[in-house]
């Protein structure tokens, strides 16, 4: 079997649409994941023991089991309890629930980089907790975790390929569907891989840039 470029050319418009959906689903997932991560952080700082324990178990489960299984549980679980969500939304939810567990660890790391004196200063000024977190800590943390967050985003971009299994027509699913019609796996898979590679490579370069800026801020 040879490599026939014309099949690539033919598929290109569809693959580009698929890649757009891959980017969109990842973007929604990282945004929602950030929300989950912040919520988990707040719960873990809440000093309410049962809540803290629940958060710990949640994080351990999310990090200790395959994302693939998590996606399937969310997808089947939602329909089982009668929530009929679009596949796209189910995918975003599954990815962000998983991502949140990793992001909260990043936030934890970022918090340790902020000198404790800043908290003391805020408290000395009589600032309520809400302000301390909303105006002092989180803005700085979000800036500090930009480099790992970008890497997490590339991780989600790659992980979103798994959403093809629940029928989200992103890049991988698009390729599969074209292959079913054309029987050209070589052209399609190599092209799809190239698409992913370019996206991740560019994001990797962005992450390194962020890292330099963040390093300068820390110093």
């Amino acid at each position: 079997m040879t490599f026939e470029p014309r099949y690539v050319v033919q598929a290109l418009p569809f693959l580009i649409r698929g890649a757009r959906l891959t980017l969109e689903v990842s973007l929604f997932a990282i945004a929602l994941g950030l929300v989950v991560g912040v919520l988990l952080t707040i719960i873990r700082q809440s000093r309410i023991k049962p809540l803290e324990a629940a958060a710990s178990i949640y994080i351990s489960l999310m990090r200790g089991t395959p994302l693939f299984i998590q996606i399937l549980i969310v997808y089947f679980g939602l329909s089982e309890i009668g929530v009929d969500l679009p596949r796209f939304l189910a995918g975003v939810i599954a990815l962000s629930l998983n991502s949140g567990a990793y992001i909260t660890e990043m936030i934890r790391g970022g918090l340790t980089a902020i000198p404790p004196g800043q908290r003391d200063a805020a408290k000395a000024l009589g600032m309520p907790n809400r302000y301390l977190w909303g105006h002092i800590l989180l803005p700085q943390v979000l800036f500090l975790i930009m480099p790992p967050l970008t890497i997490e985003f590339t991780g989600l971009l790659k992980a979103s390929a798994l959403l093809s299994v629940i029928g989200v027509v992103e890049l991988t699913r698009t390729s599969q569907e074209i292959i079913i019609g054309t029987f050209r796996p070589v052209e399609l898979w190599l092209t799809a891989a190239t698409f992913y590679f370019v996206m991740c490579f560019v994001l990797g370069a962005v992450a390194r840039r962020f890292e330099r800026v963040a390093a300068a801020y820390r110093a």
């Binding site: 798994l162 991988t172 796996p185 590679f197």
Partner: peptide, 23 residues
Amino acid sequence: VELIRDTPFLVQVFVIFFVVPAS
């Protein structure tokens, strides 16, 4: 290393399972 790190594992599996046999 870059090739592996910048593509989804699922796609790598497909490449090995479907593209390699073509050769």
